[in-house]
Design a binder for these strands. Sequence first.
DNA 1: AATCATTTTGTAAGTGCTTTCAAATTTTAC
DNA 2: GTAAAATTTGAAAGCACTTACAAAATGATT
Lengths: 338, 338
Amino acid sequence: MNIYDVSHKAGVSIATVSRVLNGNPNVSPKTRQKVLDVMQELGYTPNVFARGLGLNTMKTIGILCLDSSDPFLANAVYYLEQNLRKYGYDIILCCTGYDLKNKQKYLDLLLSKRVDAVILVGSSFLEPQRKDNTYLFQAAASVPVIIINGYINHPNIYCALCDDAQAVFDATTKLIENGRTNILYLYHSKSYSGQQKLSGYKEAILSAGLKLDENLMLLCKNDMHQTKEAITEAAANGVKFDAVIAAEDLLAVGAIKYAKQAGLKIPKDLAVIGYNNSLLSSCCEPELTTIDNHIETISITAVNTLMRVFSGNDVPNRTTISNDLVERGTTDFAKNEI
Amino acid sequence: MNIYDVSHKAGVSIATVSRVLNGNPNVSPKTRQKVLDVMQELGYTPNVFARGLGLNTMKTIGILCLDSSDPFLANAVYYLEQNLRKYGYDIILCCTGYDLKNKQKYLDLLLSKRVDAVILVGSSFLEPQRKDNTYLFQAAASVPVIIINGYINHPNIYCALCDDAQAVFDATTKLIENGRTNILYLYHSKSYSGQQKLSGYKEAILSAGLKLDENLMLLCKNDMHQTKEAITEAAANGVKFDAVIAAEDLLAVGAIKYAKQAGLKIPKDLAVIGYNNSLLSSCCEPELTTIDNHIETISITAVNTLMRVFSGNDVPNRTTISNDLVERGTTDFAKNEI
DNA sequence: AATCATTTTGTAAGTGCTTTCAAATTTTAC
DNA sequence: GTAAAATTTGAAAGCACTTACAAAATGATT
């Protein structure tokens, strides 16, 4: 079953069938309808490979993601898929893990599959050393590259992100205004957005005239129980704190578990703020105050950006999305609502 | 840059290059190495479309999933991706939502992309009426179809699943032996596995000589807060219960929230058991006792099954994976450990 | 009705690979 | 050293589509 069968049955040439297939306007309405009817009747589907050979595109976007089982990343992948599909694009999903070699390998693989663009979910695809990002630059030489939650300056790399530094700055400042003076910061990644968040924390501390304390910046594993243990150990070593702000909801849950174990009341003895507003944040007890970085909006923006790039428009390399603090049970900010 | 460039530079024919590309053994070691060297030097990557045209396969598996942002389904997708990649397969991910029309549409789309197989993540792809599954049978006519957590009898449809009925039966029975007599069952889906779980619950109640009470089987929305409300309403209507067993961890979290609101102590006043052993289960307070259906093992089994089908082996149509009860803080079973 | 412009259609040459079959080369056996 | 067998190689015909270009059909203009 191929284009010849359709052309025979419709009594036209394969060129005409192909034109109908591709929405070419140079086909008279009569013939177009006739061809469409035959296609319908025969249940004809064009062969994507032959099509790809001619067009050199398959309307497919490659998505690179550290680990699609992480609730936050899974959300991003979901929103990307839904929105790309609206424009008729499929996604090929690759979960790379943290290893740089693997990231490179999968990126090459996507390019060899002739994807039309690559979307990187998570700033951990940006290596700290700029020279280690050459693999991205190479990819960007052949297709547009979109980074979710990261920023790097390059003509064919487009970034959609939340101002993480500002978000953490605001939240930290709010804790300080709330009377908290020893704020423990939990993070597990030194990725671009990880650094942004950390710098937001530091800025807030310094702006408030407080002193930065290295002991209050705790590098954790991405696991709630291990995070609990890490905090327990820090506390045992004499680190004092009356609030926690975490770079991920998961870490914040670890802090809640620590408080429970240490017999601390939340939020009275310990205030906790998470990040991402994931499912976890409304699952724990008390429910978690968290920064919502609007991942759905970021994903939609990324897709829209890509579509504009495809249509040859000039597109800014960076789009920043707003964020907000979702207040739940782990903080007791005065209600200053108007 | 194509196969001709390589063949010229290596001084061989394109047929030889193609053989090297496909690991055909009928190439002398010398020429093979020469060709490989040239490929390396030129940075040659074969064009997947041309390749697909000839081979009519692209080493790509289509994955159909209701909603990849659901923690449980996201996990399954992740494990599938990781294991398929070991065999050199890519995945195209489609999130369909509940609408049957959409499921059909995406399945057609995957077939038109000439995927080598389709994996359906979740038994919600099995419609209650057998005739509504013709779309699956049609797909199965052209490629192998794998269903995760569902079962239907068809020669080209392979199923990897946990014995959900048995799992719920065992857990319910354990609650009864623990002295609980009014067990509330929460579910949100009437999919194949949903029905299995429900039947396991019913069997357990009846086997124990208790009476089935329709009021104790609560159909909820897939949302923890709405579940809490649903339970609250049931309680207000006079439904009494001293234990909850839920078809999903998310619903169980709703039950924990209800207990908190109603001032009930867990597990003393109310025991709770969830399903899936997802991240949520160790996130809530107390941590959730839950049925682990070993989704990683199921996913690996599904992939292995598929590979065996590809290699033309005879493969059983159904593989059942064991499950176990992970006891955490929401139950107080006597510790009968040996 | 004849000419020209415009729209519509068809022919044929790619697109980059796989694979069959025959030819060339190498190995083995005597 | 030669014939037969086995291995290695290449020429050429697909695979199912796109698209440039030429040809045909239609419509407009006088």
